[in-house]
Design a binder for these strands. Structure first.
Lengths: 324, 324
DNA sequence: GGACTCCTTGCACGTATGTTCATTCCGGTT
DNA sequence: AACCGGAATGAACATACGTGCAAGGAGTCC
């Protein structure tokens, strides 16, 4: 993270701040601002971009009473959660969907996360997309904790996951706590043993007291195969095992069925993600879903009560309501 | 006030809301939004304007720790108030200054005023400028109270003052309480009598419990003559009286000297503005000042402890610090 | 000291946006 | 049914804005 003590940065920020004032509060044109700041219009344009990108300027969209769209209201009523439906045209591709939902989440995240908080972060394509857009916000004494290991037979997974974690960390000026374990152990006993190690148990303890959990959903048995299933984390036998157990999805590599149950799914004993009973104690559990392929998975996660705040694209939201 | 039950308005708002999402949260171009909403790009432009104008989109500027500009810090330290310095180029004219400070205040006012609150409002050119730009915000059970009468020998003053009051009222969906009395009575006894009338005392009572007071400053003895002094409210004899009493300014037609004292100023006995002892009980007292001509007046108001939140243009702020 | 990189700046261009104007659409009236 | 404002619309125009690019400057390494 970059601490803001660089004098040139501070200058830049001061200018960005006045520029933002003049532009957003006083409706001056960039040209006019350029004159006041004795620079060129392009520089002002860049200053303002900088101001927005660094969260110096915060653009909120109010829901003035009526705004919870019809869909959001329905979802909230049916599932007792807070819903954010992201408008996306039906024609959009699944990657578009993900990208646009992720962007919305990234922009709003600073509203939830603050100083002295701990946020648990999963990994996967959804989290990756979000991480690439998080709007920075300075916080103090805050922590980003990795929810589940990312290693597999081929790599330690540190690169991919830590890249994601790192982006959140720098954006919020938070300490990043990596979780250097594989996604799944071969042997449950290894997990038990490791969990008793102080270096690891410290992390588990942090997960237990985190204020926010942020995660996408895995959906093993649908069109788009999520990273967990394509990245060499699971072998065919394990895949078959999930299928036999009628698993519909996972949160941080912990699996569940359509009715939300997770008992008796052997793979969970070897998984490094937080147990659902632990996860459910987290006050705010933000789930990000894009695309119909995750619909079954989403239903399961809702049934399992894993979600308190849902971000979902419009058409998936509609599908969720209509076929429920 | 317009209650938002008109179906066509609600449609418009819904569209404006999605447009705002797409534009500000997802960075789509207006063209793209037009396609999604099945309308023209111009309409989207208009929708977005509408969204901003109605406060549907709220643009905030964060002060990430260091941002209280040097000036603001100095003012806050010296006078124990919250200061908002509005950047305005030194070359700007006094009307420019006022306009730009007023715009900034108007934009930020919704941050202070909320449901179930009562706000006292003065009148004058400063308040007029602000009123023309207030960003709407729906509130419930809130009140706008006129602080001082606006009548004079020639008119009841209801037109001018109520225009200002009305704009605040509609912007916040608040009840407006007019104060149908002259700015100054001819005879103090009339004031005493009237103050005992229930219709009037109700208003006085509301002033006593208001949460916010919003006012500009009058400056009788400086270049620009404020509305109170030009509008036929005072006669030459009264003007001389003020001069003799070494008055430097007024808040809602109640006068004070450079040291903040107001005792023994005869005119105050006939003024309809709130007594300073009453005013000082208001938790938040927002004062808006633009232009050097009000400097002496500002000093006096600060000495009198009439201000908790100050909005001032940069160059006046600088003058305030430098010559204090 | 010079050659190098890295960063910042202003210009110029193409694109995105605000606004005017003629037109259409809608609700109410005759 | 015809007529009439008034509001909303899209086309066209005029600005305002974002960005690639080349030039300049500051720092660093040889």
């Amino acid at each position: 993270m970059t601490v803001d003590t660089d004098p040139v940065q501070s200058d830049r920020n001061r200018d960005a701040l006045t520029a933002a004032h003049l532009y957003y509060m006083q409706d001056l044109t960039m040209d006019a601002i350029a004159q006041e700041l004795h620079t060129s219009r392009s520089s002002v344009s860049r200053l303002l971009s900088h101001a927005r990108a660094t969260g110096l300027v915060d653009i909120q969209i109010k829901s003035p009473l009526d705004a919870p769209s019809h869909l959001e209201q329905q979802i909230e009523a049916r599932f007792q959660i807070t819903a954010h439906v992201v408008p996306v045209p039906d024609s959009a591709s699944d990657v578009d969907r993900l990208e646009r939902v992720a962007l919305s989440v990234a922009r709003i995240l600073g509203r939830y996360f603050d100083s002295n908080m701990t946020m648990g972060i999963a990994w996967g394509s959804t989290m990756n997309a979000i991480s690439r857009h998080v709007t920075p916000k300075q916080t103090h004494n805050s922590q980003i904790v990795q929810l589940n290991g990312a290693g597999n037979m081929r790599t330690t997974g540190l690169g991919y996951a830590s890249e994601i974690l790192g982006r959140f960390g720098t954006a919020f000026g938070a300490h990043v706590q990596q979780f250097p374990v594989p996604a799944f152990f071969d042997n449950p006993a290894t997990k038990q043993a490791l969990w008793r190690e102080r270096s690891i148990s410290r992390l588990i303890d942090m997960q237990a007291i985190m204020d926010i959990a942020l995660f996408g959903l895995g959906s093993p048995f649908s069109g788009v195969i999520s990273r967990v299933y394509a990245g060499g984390y699971l072998e065919q036998a394990e895949f078959d095992e999930l299928s036999a157990a009628r698993v519909v999805g996972d949160v941080a590599t912990v699996f569940y069925r359509a009715d939300g149950s997770a008992d008796g799914i052997a793979l969970n004993e070897r998984s490094t993600g937080p147990d659902f009973t632990v996860l459910r104690r987290t006050p705010r559990r933000i789930c990000v879903v894009a695309g119909h392929s995750k619909l079954a998975s989403l239903r399961g996660a809702l049934a399992a009560q894993l979600i308190t705040d849902l971000f979902v694209d419009e058409s998936t939201a509609r599908a969720l309501i209509e076929t429920a």
